[in-house]
Design a protein around this nucleic acid. Sequence first.
DNA 1: CAATTTAGTTCAGCATACTGAAATATCCAT
DNA 2: ATGGATATTTCAGTATGCTGAACTAAATTG
Lengths: 128, 128
Amino acid sequence: MVAFHEAVGASLGVTAVDQRALAVIMGAGSVSAGELAREIGLTPGAVTGVVDRLVRAGLARREPDLEDRRRLVITAVPGAFGDTFAGLAKAMAELTDRYTPAEQAVIADWVANTIGVLREQTRILTEG
Amino acid sequence: MVAFHEAVGASLGVTAVDQRALAVIMGAGSVSAGELAREIGLTPGAVTGVVDRLVRAGLARREPDLEDRRRLVITAVPGAFGDTFAGLAKAMAELTDRYTPAEQAVIADWVANTIGVLREQTRILTEG
DNA sequence: CAATTTAGTTCAGCATACTGAAATATCCAT
DNA sequence: ATGGATATTTCAGTATGCTGAACTAAATTG
């Protein structure tokens, strides 16, 4: 999985950090540069570069915030992520089809729990 | 998962590439520096740095090859990996226990297949 | 046993991305 | 209105890790 992400990054010209930033953006719908900086643990200066690379790769958009014109609204470009991961999505869909609905439910449950475990363990490593 | 690996790397002072190298070493049992270079796609010069960092982190050992004294035998330090991932291993074991043996079989099958899909997609991205 | 090949390290040069600080623009409180 | 706070960018300095080439040591070939 890590190797796959590195390959994606290399082919798009974005770093691992950039991809995590994109995940944050997609998870939140949209974020400001400052929020993104706090979320991924970088300085505001570095976030400019992160967003630059995501925009250059066609994965994100930088738009002015109409309510607070100091801010940016950073959003993911709909579909761009899907295009990049189209091969993976297709292969995974085919894989999913091989399982019964009951089995799919078990797998989905396990995946959700595993994500929780990884989040928690990451937190422990990072903070403690 | 990518975030977790980055956190592990940061706490041990090794890069993502180093961790992939360690996976190669553990998978093969032991490798020479040249084999490692080919496997992870780096020049021999860069591999010296990779192995330096893994050794410094206590994750790998560099030993002379008794049969060909130009070569190195690079091995993983037994247990070092386990120690680092002990928290994750424990949490994942607890998670696994929540499922019946039949469910565990389904999950294991899915995980194995998913690894295959990721390998294949990584190959496509890297080569094609 | 000399010449060539192979394994790994070292080192200079280069590219990349981060930090911290200064600059700019905008908002908000008085 | 005006002064201070906030959001983002820019830029110089720094750190890191890679490549490619030169170097050392050891194996292999003729």
